[in-house]
Design a protein around this nucleic acid. Structure first.
Length: 773
DNA sequence: ACTAACGTCAAT
DNA sequence: ATTGACGTTAGT
């Protein structure tokens, strides 16, 4: 040991000298600027740490420079000074690899994993870099076979080697190059990481180490985003803390209320290693001893992938996160599952399928993630979906019209004309089961106010839209790294190791008959149900109408469920959030944004929503002609791969513009860009008049034949004359002229009489014309 | 030899 | 905590 320390010192000294020499032509020679000096422990006795390099395969690597980001602008080729020498934000590699020249410190040879098929064997002959001591070795070349290495899923070929792990050392989590910049910037793929999984890592000596640990490591922002708790500094530039120090810091992260458990924690640290071999199993049943084991969670330190906490955790959360998000257990629960994702593919995660394994050892049941870590897990999972969504979107760019996300779960060919259709077809509607539901939103749903009823009952008084949050809910910091996912099991595993006779599909059908509230209860039953209940068929409509605050976790929950209809009306969703969201909901058919701010709605200007059929932007503050133009004009971004210059909303069938100050200028754009528009709500639009109706029904317009329902109620400038224009409409079925002061009943009756030759109309209500039969 | 850019320090 | 800077490494 002493000898090793000496070697270390010599090594350190060498590095000091080297770096000093390297510093000579700096304007301000600084002592010990080299990383080597400051991080002697990162230099193994065997040589310098290898810098990682691009994988050249990930989406980021395959991108071209945006030319627009900070770093691009610095580049000489973009006219910058070239001082920063950083990669384009959009091109920050997601999975940076060891350089080709890297070799095993023991045998001196390169990684040979390509030579083998068997994943498990492959692991042992691939090069693994220790994130603590930086040694690069073939796991096979290590003598210490009985100690566990902890694989870092963050980075390919990265682990905490058995030596360091055994010694209880901890190191900062290595992250991809440029991470510190890119992770925080909009658009960066680093925020949405994809992790390539290797099954084989589940050999007897190796455990996976997801990014969680007692230190927040490289991604404090992630923690912060979810919990608004200042992270503990990763001691990258400080001497490595002794285990006690580490523990102290760790405890802070978890819970200040658990001071008295400190000693237990210390023991737990070693326990963590003892149980490494069992971490692959997942929680199956709801832990009966939940309360009793609460404090023990603080002990958890090593990655126990798949051991994700499903429910509760509320207790901890209240202590760890300052502002408690309105999102509660069920959403957290459900976020375990990926079965609802249209892209949820086969998993590659070794051992994360507990359902097939029967009952686990008792010790394992205590392996629960503290809630914060759960959130991270969830976020990670989400991000995998996001990544897939990205891929999906990328494909979409190549084939703009074929985006129908198909999966085992989907009924792809349904046509959704509007939200009510959806609502009518499916019993699952979040609003209806708000009581005690996951997001605890029922108080945001004053029952007397419905999105529709509102318009009708309060003409003239524009409701105050909820104020935008002071700062957007840290979407850009909602960093997520995905663990691998596994498909949901087909049958429910039973305690005796057998499986229940009823198949998942049957269960899902059953779940289709319960309310969302009940579904949320089901989600808490067990992991398997949790995943099944997240089936997106059960969540085609997500209604957050009047939900005061949209949190990142809620967004995660939405993405997870891939709804076809999303109601965000009267929320204070931010532009960034909305943009983030709709970019990940490529199959979205119905988007309700009434009462949101134009700033938020403007996310639609830059985001693609190709299948959108229903768009509700009524009462959007600040949405006028100019904004309408932005909304309807083709994307300005015509870089390669973005070649779709058609209107983003070209497939909109149902457009709701009630309460907007739009004029004929907007209507002209609508006529031009929405060829399949069938339902148009212009109620409470004070600028709409007969001329507007004339435009909509003019010869040569598509709207003339496509329009079936027009709502002009409370449009005081509309007169009887409009009815004569409507006679030109080939498909019109429903004309709402209620409360139009200048429209007379006589004119309506005359309209009915004249139309009766071809179509039979009737007055459903005063000035509400409707086709009969 | 050359370009790209990683990983770090230090200023902010 | 974030960001500008830059020595140095990786790849061609």
């Amino acid at each position: 040991m002493l000898f090793k320390r000496c070697i270390g010192l010599i090594d350190e000294l060498c590095w000091s000298l080297m770096s000093f020499a390297g510093d000579t032509n700096r304007p301000k020679p600084k002592m010990g600027t080299s990383a080597a000096v400051k991080l002697p422990s990162n230099r193994s006795a065997s040589g310098a740490r290898r810098r990682r390099t691009r994988c050249r395969k990930c989406e980021a690597c395959l991108r071209t420079e945006c030319g627009d980001c900070h770093f691009c602008k610095d580049m000489k080729k973009f006219g910058g000074p070239g001082r920063m020498k950083q990669s384009c934000i959009m091109r920050q590699c997601i999975a940076p690899v060891l350089p080709h020249t890297a070799v095993c410190v023991v045998c001196g040879e390169a990684g040979k994993e390509d030579s083998l098929e068997e994943e498990e064997d492959r692991f042992n002959i691939m090069l693994m870099e220790c994130s603590i001591c930086s040694e690069i070795v073939h796991p096979n070349c290590l003598k210490v076979k009985d100690a566990s290495g902890v694989v870092n899923d963050e980075l390919p070929n990265c682990w905490e080697c058995p030596k360091c792990n055994y010694a209880g050392k901890t190191g900062k989590q290595k992250r991809g190059p440029g991470f510190k910049y890119a992770s925080n910037l909009p658009g960066s793929l680093l925020r949405e990481q994809k992790v390539v999984k290797e099954e084989g890592e589940s050999t007897s000596t190796v455990k996976r180490k997801p990014e969680r640990d007692e230190t927040p490591r490289h991604r404090p922002e992630e923690w912060e985003a979810l919990h608004r708790q200042p992270p503990v500094l990763s001691p990258s530039t400080l001497p490595r803390p002794r285990p006690e120090d580490k523990l102290r810091k760790k405890r802070k992260l978890f819970d200040d209320d658990y001071e008295e458990d400190f000693d237990v924690r210390k023991k737990g640290k070693s326990d963590g290693h003892l149980f490494l071999n069992q971490i692959k199993t997942e929680e199956e049943e709801v832990d009966e001893e939940e309360k009793a084991s609460l404090y023990r969670r603080g002990l958890e330190r090593r990655g126990r992938l798949g051991d994700t906490e499903e429910e509760d955790g509320d207790d901890e959360d209240t202590k760890t996160s300052l502002p408690r998000p309105p999102l509660k257990a069920p959403v957290l629960d459900s976020d375990q599952s990926h079965c609802s994702s249209p892209w949820a593919g086969p998993s590659s995660e070794g051992g994360s399928e507990p359902q097939e394994k029967g009952p686990r050892p008792k010790a394992c049941r205590k392996r629960r993630l503290p809630n914060k870590e759960l959130s991270k897990e969830l976020s990670k999972a989400l991000n995998q979906e996001i990544q897939k969504t990205e891929d999906c979107l990328a494909n979409e760019n190549r084939q703009p019209l074929k985006v129908e996300p198909e999966s085992e779960n989907e009924e792809p060919k349904r046509s959704f004309r509007n939200g009510s259709d959806l609502g009518g077809e499916r019993p699952h509607h979040w609003t209806k089961e708000m009581n005690g539901t996951p997001w605890e939103l029922r108080h945001f749903y004053p029952s007397q106010i419905t999105p529709l009823g509102f318009n009708r009952s309060s003409p003239g008084t524009r409701p105050l839209p909820p104020r935008s949050p002071p700062k957007c809910v840290q979407m850009e910091r909602h960093v997520i790294r995905p663990p691998p996912i596994s498909p949901p099991p087909d049958r429910l595993p039973l305690v005796d190791g057998k499986t229940h006779a009823v198949q998942r599909e049957v269960w899902v059908k059953i779940f289709g008959h319960v309310t969302h509230k009940e579904l949320c209860v089901c989600m808490r039953v067990c992991k398997t149900w949790n995943r099944w209940c997240c089936d997106k068929r059960l969540w085609t409509i997500i209604d957050l109408n009047r939900c005061k605050s949209i949190t990142p976790l809620m967004l995660s929950g939405i993405i997870r469920r891939q709804p076809l209809s999303l109601d965000l009306s009267w929320t204070n969703i931010s532009k960034k959030q909305l943009s983030w969201l709709i970019n990940r909901l490529p199959g979205l058919r119905v988007l309700l944004l009434s009462g949101c701010s134009w700033v938020a709605v403007s996310a639609l200007c830059t985001s693609s929503c190709p299948l959108l059929r229903t768009l509700d932007v009524q009462w959007v503050e600040g949405l006028k002609d100019a904004q309408m133009r932005d909304l309807l004009s083709p994307p300005t971004d015509n870089r390669p791969g973005q070649l779709d210059n058609r209107c983003k909303l070209r497939n909109v069938v149902d457009l709701r513009l009630a309460g907007l100050d739009v004029t004929d200028a907007s209507l002209r754009l609508i006529i031009r860009h929405m060829p399949v528009l069938s339902q148009l709500d212009l109620s409470y639009c004070n600028h709409v008049n007969d001329q507007s109706v004339n435009l909509l029904t003019a010869a040569g317009t598509t709207t003339r034949d496509s329009l079936t329902e027009v709502n002009l109620s409370v449009c005081n400038r509309v007169t009887d004359h409009s009815l004569t224009f409507f006679k030109r409409c080939g498909s019109i079925c429903h004309i709402d002229l209620r409360y139009c002061k200048q429209v007379t009943k006589t004119a309506c009756e005359q309209f009915i009489a004249e139309m009766s030759v071809s179509v039979q109309f009737g007055l459903k209500e005063d000035k509400l014309l409707q086709k009969l039969g």
